Computed example of a mutant assay.
Amino acid sequence: MALPNLALIGFFTYRPLLANMYYSTLDWTLGSTDATVVGFGNYMEFFTSGDAGSVLGATAIFTLATVGGSMVVGLLVAVALNQKIPGSTLARSAVFAPYVLSGVGVGMVWLFIFDPVYGVLSWVLRGVGLASPQWINDPDLALLMVIIVYVWKNLGYCAIVYLAGLQSMPQDVLEAAALDGAGPLRRFCLVSFPLLSPTTFFLLITSLLSSLQAFDIIKIMTPTGNGTGTLIFEAYLQAFGAYNRAGYSAAISIVLFLVLLTMTGLQLRFVERKVHYA
């Protein structure tokens, strides 16, 4: 009964993975009918080149900032949305709405906001006598720009998942803590947050995998990768940019795959120990 599904997974997931591993051992220009086997030459070139440090550094900064920012802000928003106040249903919909929007559309709108010449933010800053930062031209600010947009787009997902965890929490435990004299902050830190550990663990894995594979917003807001060259975007630039180096791009993709596999394995091995399922 499972054989058709297994066949589809094997054909559309594992077959391309194995093919990409093979391509990563080739010196192959995209569109060319000729390729030279170079073994681990593409991997050695990547890790010994000057670009490896900047690519891995940008990937680490972007991932840590977006995962941490989305989860922390999402938790705070979930706590606020968990209150019984008028309009909470509308507020929940508004918070979650950016997550389901197209990344291309979100990137284009925010690019108009951050544009240092014609953007809305520059217009506001000029109105108070300040110059607009060069968000697009400065590599450090460009990375900060895409981090802000990515956190804004994905915090609704974390907020809704955390909200579900808060609403499924046993109320008798919270009431017992309140009767013992614990204030709201202490109840949250010592009771609610530990009970949210399964939710936090789930969000940590899914958000980490999503951030490491973020592409659309980065591509729209910084088409040339000015300071925002993460692993997946660098693989795209090498294959479909000015270089057309399909083999080298495949090697970078395999590096990303190994990073994803390692991070997921470490979380399952060590982080899950801190999770309380009951």
Rank of each mutant, 00 (worst) to 15 (best):
Gly105Met: 09
Gly105Thr: 09
Gly105Asp: 06
Gly105Ile: 11
Val106Asp: 03
Val106Cys: 07
Gly107Ile: 00
Gly107Tyr: 00
Gly107Lys: 01
Met108Pro: 10
Met108Gly: 08
Met108His: 12
Met108Cys: 10
Val109Ala: 12
Val109Asp: 09
Val109Met: 10
Val109Asn: 07
Trp110His: 02
Leu111Gly: 15
Leu111Glu: 13
Phe112Ala: 15
Phe112Gln: 14
Phe112Glu: 12
Ile113Cys: 08
Ile113Asn: 03
Phe114Val: 06
Phe114Ala: 03
Phe114Arg: 02
Phe114Asn: 00
Asp115Cys: 08
Asp115Val: 06
Asp115Ala: 11
Pro116Met: 10
Pro116Asp: 11
Val117His: 12
Val117Thr: 13
Val117Leu: 12
Val117Asp: 13
Tyr118Ala: 15
Gly119Gln: 05
Gly119Met: 07
Val120Gly: 10
Val120Leu: 15
Leu121Ala: 08
Ser122Val: 08
Trp123Pro: 03
Trp123Ala: 15
Trp123Asn: 13
Trp123Leu: 12
Trp123Phe: 14
Trp123Gly: 13
Val124Lys: 05
Val124Gln: 07
Leu125Lys: 00
Leu125Pro: 03
Leu125Tyr: 05
Leu125Met: 11
Leu125Thr: 01
Arg126Tyr: 11
Gly127Asn: 02
Val128Ile: 11
Gly129Cys: 08
Ala131Trp: 10
Ser132Asn: 08
Ser132Gly: 10
Ser132Thr: 08
Ser132Pro: 08
Gln134Ile: 09
Gln134Leu: 14
Gln134Tyr: 12
Gln134Glu: 15
Gln134Thr: 14
Trp135Asp: 04
Ile136Thr: 14
Ile136Asn: 12
Ile136Met: 15
Ile136Cys: 11
Asn137Phe: 14
Asn137Asp: 15
Asn137Pro: 09
Asp138Leu: 10
Asp138Val: 11
Pro139Cys: 10
Pro139Arg: 07
Pro139Gln: 07
Asp140Trp: 13
Asp140Val: 15
Asp140Met: 14
Leu141Val: 09
Leu141Lys: 09
Leu141Thr: 06
Leu141Met: 11
Leu141His: 06
Leu141Pro: 04
Leu141Asp: 01
Ala142Asn: 11
Leu143Lys: 05
Leu143Tyr: 07
Met145Ile: 07
Val146Lys: 02
Val146Ile: 14
Val146Thr: 03
Val146Phe: 06
Val146Met: 04
Val146Gln: 01
Val146Asn: 02
Val146His: 02
Val146Cys: 09
Ile147Cys: 06
Ile147Glu: 01
Ile148Phe: 08
Ile148His: 05
Ile148Pro: 01
Ile148Ala: 10
Ile148Met: 09
Val149Thr: 04
Val149Gly: 06
Val149His: 03
Val149Leu: 06
Tyr150Lys: 14
Val151Arg: 00
Val151Leu: 03
Val151Cys: 01
Trp152Pro: 00
Trp152Glu: 02
Lys153Gln: 11
Lys153Cys: 05
Lys153His: 05
Lys153Asp: 06
Lys153Ala: 06
Lys153Arg: 12
Asn154Leu: 03
Asn154Asp: 10
Leu155Asn: 01
Gly156Asp: 02
Gly156Asn: 02
Gly156Trp: 00
Gly156Ser: 06
Gly156His: 02
Gly156Phe: 01
Gly156Lys: 00
Tyr157Leu: 05
Tyr157Cys: 01
Tyr157Ala: 06
Tyr157Asn: 03
Tyr157Asp: 06
Tyr157Met: 06
Cys158Gln: 04
Cys158Trp: 02
Cys158Asn: 11
Cys158Val: 05
Ala159Phe: 00
Ala159Pro: 00
